Computed example of a mutant assay.
Amino acid sequence: MKNKFKIATFNLWKDCGEFPSRIEKIGDYLTKLDCICFQEDYHSDSFNSSDTINKTLNMQKYTLEIRKKNRDGILSSSNLTILSKIKPSKIDKLIFDKDGEDERGALIVEIEYNEKIY
């Protein structure tokens, strides 16, 4: 359908499962979406899940880096990330228990598309 804004959210499961090979395949399945929200977007000095996915999609990227800690001996974070074909009109973030054991967050993005706000 024309003029539809297609948005989805996915939990990338940090570095669990068949990682990183499963991450390298994900972008091929998301090409018809306009905006994608990722939970547990793994980031370390040597690998970033959303960057790997975005090589296929070439969207604008917005990330909230949270939950930085050692995972299997590698310092990494488990981020919230949004990839979007349309530049957001507003971006904000909330972080709870910053730098604490239970650090959590929210990435708030407002996108205007066809005179509607998402």
Rank of each mutant, 00 (worst) to 15 (best):
S44V: 08
E65D: 06
I74V: 15
G17P: 02
D45R: 14
N11I: 08
D45I: 15
G100S: 09
I108Q: 08
K93F: 14
V109H: 00
E101P: 01
E65W: 01
E103V: 00
D92T: 11
T31D: 06
F19V: 11
S44P: 01
Q60H: 13
E103F: 03
K69C: 07
D28C: 01
T9K: 05
V109C: 11
I7K: 02
L80H: 09
A8M: 06
S76D: 12
Q39T: 03
G100R: 01
A8V: 15
I36Y: 09
D92K: 10
L83Q: 03
K2M: 06
F96P: 04
I117M: 00
K32M: 14
L33G: 06
E101A: 04
N70C: 05
T56L: 00
K6D: 00
I117A: 00
D28V: 02
T52S: 04
D102A: 09
L33K: 03
I82G: 02
L80Y: 12
D34P: 06
E18I: 02
I53C: 01
T81G: 10
C35Q: 04
D45P: 12
L75F: 15
D45G: 13
I111T: 00
L57F: 07
L33P: 01
S76W: 05
D51W: 13
G27F: 05
F38K: 13
N54S: 10
G17I: 07
T56A: 06
T31P: 01
G73P: 06
R22L: 05
I74S: 13
G100D: 10
E115Q: 09
I74M: 06
S44C: 13
L33W: 09
I74T: 15
Q39H: 11
E40T: 12
D97Y: 13
C16F: 12
C35G: 03
S21L: 15
R22T: 02
P88L: 11
Y42R: 10
T56M: 03
F10I: 15
N54Q: 07
Y29K: 07
T9Y: 04
L57R: 11
E65C: 06
F38G: 14
S89M: 04
S49R: 09
E110D: 15
S44F: 14
L107C: 11
K93P: 02
N114P: 01
K69N: 10
F19P: 05
L64K: 08
L12C: 09
S77G: 05
I86R: 00
K2H: 08
S76I: 08
F47D: 11
